[in-house]
């Protein structure tokens, strides 16, 4: 038998939304999460059409509101927290966030460079003739 410490079944004692004996949060937690999520959603829809702010600052504010709301969902609905028994969950989550950041930022970075270095379209058309 291999080392029991390496058994993947040991890896996790507490999955999100499933602490010992199945406490799926509390009424209060869901109500707070729902209330804060509503506020963040309404704020996002309210500032998006604003004519008083620069487009860049609106975009930055919307991104911040979205990330804040995702964190609210993770904490109050999915019950991910920093408790020691949730270490595996948080590490798996962190690794996924790293991959997502590489995919999204990397794609935008590479494609914007390609677009900047691309020959103008009419030039390409002429080369084909």
């Amino acid at each position: 038998m291999t080392n029991p410490l390496h058994d993947p079944r040991r890896a996790n004692r507490s999955t999100p939304s499933l602490q010992a004996h199945g406490h799926h949060g509390s009424w209060l937690g869901y109500v707070i999460g729902y209330g804060v999520a509503i506020l963040l959603t309404v704020a996002a829809f309210a500032i998006a059409p604003s004519k008083h702010m620069a487009p860049f600052s609106i975009e930055a504010a919307l991104v911040v509101l979205a990330i804040a709301q995702m964190i609210v969902h993770l904490i109050f609905f999915l019950h991910i927290n920093t408790a020691p028994e949730q270490k595996t969950n948080v590490m798996a989550f962190g690794a996924t966030m790293l991959i997502i950041a590489i995919v999204v930022i990397g794609s935008l970075w590479i494609m914007s460079h390609l677009a900047a270095n691309m020959a103008p379209m009419d030039h390409l058309m002429n080369m084909q003739r």
Binding site: R9, R10, A11, N12, R13, S14, T15, P16, S17, L18, G22, T88, N89
Partner: peptide
Amino acid sequence: ALPTRQHVTGF
């Protein structure tokens, strides 16, 4: 101390 089947499935 071992996790239950529910913990394994959930993870």
